[in-house]
Amino acid sequence: MRYATPKTAAEAASLLMEDAARVLAGGTDLLVQMKSGRLAPETIVDIKHLPGLRDITREDGGFRIGAAVSGAEMGEHTDLVAAWPGVVEGVNLIGSTQVQGRATMAGNLCNGSPAADGVPAQIAAGAVARLEGPEGTRDVPVAEIPTGPGKTSLKRGEFVTSIFLPARPERSGDAYLRFIPRTEMDIAVAGAAVNLVLGADGTVAEARVALGAVAPTAMEVPEAGAALTGSKLEDPAIEAMVDAVRAACKPIDDKRGTVEFRTHVAGVLAKRAARIAFARAGGQA
């Protein structure tokens, strides 16, 4: 097994063209999978030494978050937390204090878990991943990266260098909630993120609702967002949103939760997340 610390993106991409090569960011998924015997990579490409990958930078009023930025670093970035509290709280839910010191938002995305806590709020935010590969750079919406449990749309040799969160209009807010049977150190049984922008009249002008752990990938539910638009989260709007969420759920039935449970709870979480996002946007019922 080879461990490489490339200094340029091109070098990293060419290493990743080798057989059984894997990106290493925080390693909190990768090392666990290697230890359990599920993965046995030949080449490990540590991206933490690439220039700029550990930076959070302002760009066009938004934020570009390097693929090697840890969850703890995101949580300590005051402007980022103020603009995208839901995205940051999703990432900060990952693991424990120790895990937060290593885990990255990009690693959470590229690991491809349907239950990844960092992903639904990115989708609701309309985040865009920047990829580097043998054929150069391309930007892809985060929503299009995961394609199934453990699978992504990344091509051979490609990797994520950063994730871009767009500029925030006035009166906007987002939130993420997950359900786990205990208070920490667990995998989401269901997760829901809501991102809202309010109009001048205080009603919802734009809404995006995204779910985790209730389908093969995290996904946006456009009907749920539409149900909230034009409302101040009055009961009928919430009920319509919850119905849309539950209708979109296609969860598995396993030791962590039944189909009925995941479906029901996804609706509850979306309702609660919507209320938090609304309040963060300065909304008044």
Binding site: P181, R182, T183, E184, M185, D186, I187, K255, R256
Partner: peptide, 9 residues
């Protein structure tokens, strides 16, 4: 992970 003893929190 899935044999859930209570954690401190």
């Amino acid at each position: 992970l899935d044999y859930r003893v209570p954690v401190a929190s």
